[in-house]
């Protein structure tokens, strides 16, 4: 879990070769990534949304779990940095034919890929890959473990709106048990000094979460009264099928974030959602589209944050600079 410095590891933040999660990062590192994302926001406003900084780098988007929005966001980030990108999706890739992750790793190494962005259905898969290939590995979501770039864009959005993260009260509402986004956000928020709570039916709150430093609130009304930021998680249909909640209608009635509930908030409250939304289940449309919502800024920030992460992890090492200098002499 420590920073691996075999490739790159030369960023001033000491991030190492890979970004597999936020659990092992410090506040300085997280704030440093957010600071680096700022100039990349400006590039997305230009007419030519491209800078040559990763020109010639090959990046593979290894998405072994379906995803459209995250993959597109990464693709934009990579292309705006002038990298060459290749997409491997779970349908039609060799993994579906039964190739193990170990063999996939070996193939990627043999093809001399510079960076891999991986999304996978098993917790620990990103670290598994990172340990086996010299390329930079970025975790785009592994099982229920972490989704660090999502949390980083959430933190940037919160910081932009509230001015800081330290001391802010953030409540994550919904299916925390199955959410890698929730875990990454918990780590990121806590590292940067925020107060974190979770709220949802007990069936969806994982055991031992208080031991991580998180408060558990049982009713969404409590959450709205307490929090400055409400982070609403998607409730998947499978949870109802698996019996965690009896029905989506019941979930919406008792835990849904609605206009009526938000209007009773004592002060300003901002609402975030990682997407895609189940309108009418965990969040009502007039909230998603309403004045509390920061959902669209999240998406904009997503590309900038991913550009910042790619920029910080890619290329550049003092050793290479030395040897390049020697070669010139």
């Amino acid at each position: 879990m420590t920073a691996n410095t075999t490739n790159g590891g030369a960023d001033g933040l000491g991030l190492g070769k890979d970004l597999t999660g936020l659990q092992q990062l410090t506040c300085e590192q997280i704030e440093g990534i957010l600071d680096t994302a700022e100039p990349f926001k400006e590039i997305s406003e230009r007419r030519i949304k491209k800078v040559p900084v990763l020109r010639g780098k090959t990046i593979v988007n290894l998405f072994l779990e379906p995803s459209t929005r995250t993959r597109i966001s990464f693709e934009f980030a990579e292309k705006r940095l002038s990298a060459d990108t290749v997409n491997i999706a779970s349908s039609g890739s060799s993994v579906e034919k039964g190739e193990s992750l170990v063999d996939t790793a070996r193939n990627l190494e043999a093809m001399r890929i510079d960076m891999v962005v991986i999304r996978h259905g098993s917790s620990g898969a990103a670290q598994f890959l990172a340990d086996r290939i010299p390329s930079n590995v970025i975790n785009a979501g592994d099982g229920q473990h972490e989704h660090p770039t999502q949390a980083l864009l959430d933190l940037l959005t919160i910081r932009d709106r509230l001015g800081s993260i330290a001391g802010r009260r953030v409540c994550i509402v919904g299916d925390v048990r199955h959410s890698r986004v929730a875990r990454s956000d918990i780590w990121g928020l806590m590292r940067c000094g925020a107060e974190v709570a979770v709220c949802g039916p007990k069936t969806l709150i994982p055991m031992g979460i208080e031991e991580l430093g998180v408060t558990v609130l049982s009713r969404v009304e409590e959450a709205i009264e307490w929090a400055e930021v409400l982070y609403v998680l998607r409730l998947q249909l499978e949870r109802m099928d698996a019996g965690f909640v009896p029905s989506l209608r019941e979930y919406n009635r008792f835990f849904g974030v609605s206009r009526e509930r938000l209007e009773r908030a004592p002060g300003d409250i901002a609402v975030l959602h990682p997407g895609p939304m189940n309108r009418g289940v965990e969040i009502d449309s007039d909230v998603a589209d309403g004045p509390w919502s920061l959902i669209l800024p999240q998406v904009t920030n997503g590309v900038a944050v991913r550009m910042a992460v790619l920029y910080l992890l890619a290329g550049g090492s003092p050793e290479r600079a030395e040897s390049a200098k020697e070669a010139r002499e």
Binding site: G124, D142, H145, M207, G208, I209, E211, L212
Partner: peptide, 15 residues
């Protein structure tokens, strides 16, 4: 085992 380690690792636990 179900508990805080499983929660942090994102693995399903058996209580």
């Amino acid at each position: 085992n179900e508990g805080k380690v499983a929660t942090a690792l994102g693995l399903r636990g058996a209580p």
